[in-house]
Design a protein around this nucleic acid. Sequence first.
DNA 1: AAGCCGGACAACCGCCTCGTG
DNA 2: GCACGAGGCGGTTGTCCGGCT
Length: 401
Amino acid sequence: MGRSPCSDKVGLKKGPWTSEEDHKLLAYIEEHGHGSWRSLPIKAGLQRCGKSCRLRWTNYLRPDIKRGKFSFQEEQTIIQLHALLGNRWSAIATHLPKRTDNEIKNYWNTHLKKRLTKLGIDPVTHKPKSNAFLSSSTSTNSQSKNAANLSHMAQWESARLEAEARLAKQSKLGSINQIQNPILECPISSQKSPVVCLDIMTALNGSLMKTGLDKTKPNQSKQPLIPLSEVSYMNTTSPFLDQLMVNNGDLESPTSTVSYSENSSTLVSTLLPECRDGGIDNYNETIALKSIFSDMGVHQFGSSWSQDVFRGNIDQHQHVQESGDNFVEKFTDLLLNASNDLHTFSGGSGGGEMADKGGGSSGNGGLDREYCEDNHIDWNNVLDLSNVSPSDSSVFLGPEL
DNA sequence: AAGCCGGACAACCGCCTCGTG
DNA sequence: GCACGAGGCGGTTGTCCGGCT
């Protein structure tokens, strides 16, 4: 089965590239573009197969490749994205501009994987190898349900990120120079101050721990939040989640190769089916979802998102459509760079456990290695952000109301 | 100095997806 | 709908190099 490797053809060279070959390839592509990779080697005078040329170009010769040591921030991003996406290196690479998927993959295999293992973290699941929560014989049914649902939602989130990665890639193809790395460019990151919470599951988890009214949000006097404990979206029979997972024709399966429309408006209506349908049958559950997003800072997107859409009887559909244009971008930025510290997650009360762990209010997100070492910031804190175990995420516990 | 070993990373291989006729 | 080719992706292998004995 399968065709023979292209390099099996007689006369084609394998192995390391010489500088002369590099020069030929570079010169040809600079002058003509790569065009068809299959025909390129002949035109460029190379005794290589097209595939080998393509790999050499994309992984090594391309001018927009950043080489050298990975920064602490890049490591952090890789770990967190890997927790969500698994070994989808190309998807991860879309969030690390100037790094190739091959480079990230190699770095993971040779550095990060071992480091996590040493710390007792399973590099596959990103959970402690002896996970008391999962193995506990005293786990309650609700805990089991929560775990199952967390897994369920993690799958969905993984699929969403994958689609977002495709969007990013398409954008990059369309205007390669217009895409800037929000992580690298983030002014807040350069200030070495905020905590980044990438992990939506952790955020969701934190929100699940919360109950009651969120004082940080506007207009709640009109529409108080439904206590999350009373909302059934984490129940396996949640019609909202079920709808989220299956009702949108484009969103076939959280684990399948995602085919949902790469259209942010569609994504919004996927998230907010009642908006799509024009009804508010799932209003309570939507309010719960709002609470989650607001906790993650989505309320900062602008009034059309947090104030208008959820206020009540306004033209929700229109507002979502309007805000949907850059929803994906903002949402992903939020996950990856988000500027908010964990105060948000701890109800805005001015410093949570993470802040304490991370050496004061500066937290650990967006910090470079030197800074972390200077300030005795424990690497484990980074790992906390990718740990989705509900039982040990006290970091995200909100104030009891 | 020579051999061994392991880390790092470039390159390859096989499979998959997607576009096209 | 099907076949085919191009390109992409992730896993694996090969090679180089520095440290250690």
